Computed example of a mutant assay.
Amino acid sequence: MVTLFQALDYILFPGFWRQQVKQPVFILSNPRSGSTFLHRMLEKDQQFTYLSLWQSLFNSITIYKLVAFITRVDMSIGDPIGRIVDYLDNHFFKGWDGLHKAGLRFSEEDEFLFVSSFLAPGLVLFFPYLHEVAEIYSIDNLPEKARQKVIKNFRLSVQRHVYASGGQIFLAKNAVAGGRLGLYQEAFPDMRAIYIHSDIFKSIASSLSVFSKPWSFHSPACYKRKYESMSIIEMVRTNHQGIISHRLNFAPENAVDIQYDHLVSDPEATVNSIYQHFSLAMSDTYKASLKQDSIAAKSYKSSHVYTVEDYGFTSDEIEQYIANQSAEDQAFDEKYHELE
């Protein structure tokens, strides 16, 4: 269905494939390391455009226009469709409340642009055995012909969205994209990256909780089982390594490093440092919004405690798994410590 509407885009909106995407901004991190928190602060700045979940699933300008038209009609008759969407969100995403606020109309990662080709680590939400096809974690290693096709599709997807939004700066975030950053940079050579550095061990514990949550619904026999949980651990490990090893491929002015602890303790100062590094203007309206978000964030206290033991692992096992590195991985670690 999406392919059909994307074909219509060429007929109804033929200029989209010439749309320039200038210096898109990508937030990259370990899973569960503040990327959603930072993204949802930045997305309030009107100079950015970003993907909501439904837009990443239905990436077509024609569909965007149809949804806008249906929404206007729906609002004029009391918003019955909107209430249905809210019901579906509350039903299907309720299990993530307090972990990662999600829904069709919430901003989301660009991950679902890759799901239809089954080249997305995020598929671990649906398939507990993804570590058995580990090449999905590193699609930069695909054969060149396939890789170029993925790059073209990704570029067109972003062009569609930016065209529909009126040419704003594209803002995205992804916590599992470590194995395709080369692809990102080929699609958009002038892309800007924000790297959130965090404790990988804490990220693993939290990721086990979030990414295995749907298993309790669709594959309850797999939920909290040790073997299946290796898919999530491997996803976090390869993402972590991919991000840091690719970090050195960016010009200094196109990448900025921030610490998770600093982001949490002083969001306003962190965002100001990002804008300063990229020479982005900040409107008075957004400054006020940022200040309010910062005040609210400082009063937030998580009620969740994540442990690897809940999934059959010990801390020593996780440390040993992460430390069990090849010579290439050891070289990666040296680069990581240089950045720190």
Rank of each mutant, 00 (worst) to 15 (best):
V2C: 05
T3L: 07
L4W: 02
F5Q: 02
Y10R: 14
I11V: 15
F13P: 01
G15F: 06
W17R: 15
Q19H: 05
Q23I: 00
N30G: 03
N30Y: 12
R32V: 05
T36M: 07
H39F: 15
E43V: 14
D45Y: 12
L51F: 15
S56W: 11
L57K: 10
N59E: 02
T62I: 05
L66A: 10
L66W: 01
I70D: 02
R72W: 09
M75N: 15
S76P: 00
L88F: 11
H91Y: 13
L99H: 12
E108Q: 12
D110H: 13
L113H: 01
L113D: 01
S117Q: 13
F126Y: 06
P128S: 13
L130C: 06
K149Y: 00
K149W: 00
R155N: 10
H161G: 00
G167E: 07
I169V: 15
I169D: 04
A172H: 12
N174T: 09
A177L: 04
R180N: 08
L181Q: 12
L183E: 11
Q185K: 15
R192Y: 06
R192D: 03
R192W: 03
A193M: 14
K202V: 00
V210E: 05
V210Y: 02
F211H: 09
W215I: 09
P220N: 08
M235R: 06
M235C: 11
V236A: 02
Q241G: 02
Q241K: 11
I244D: 05
F250P: 05
F250Q: 08
E253Q: 15
I258M: 03
H262E: 15
A269P: 04
V271R: 14
I274N: 06
D284I: 04
D284C: 01
Y286F: 15
A296D: 13
H304C: 04
H304T: 13
F313Q: 11
Q325N: 06
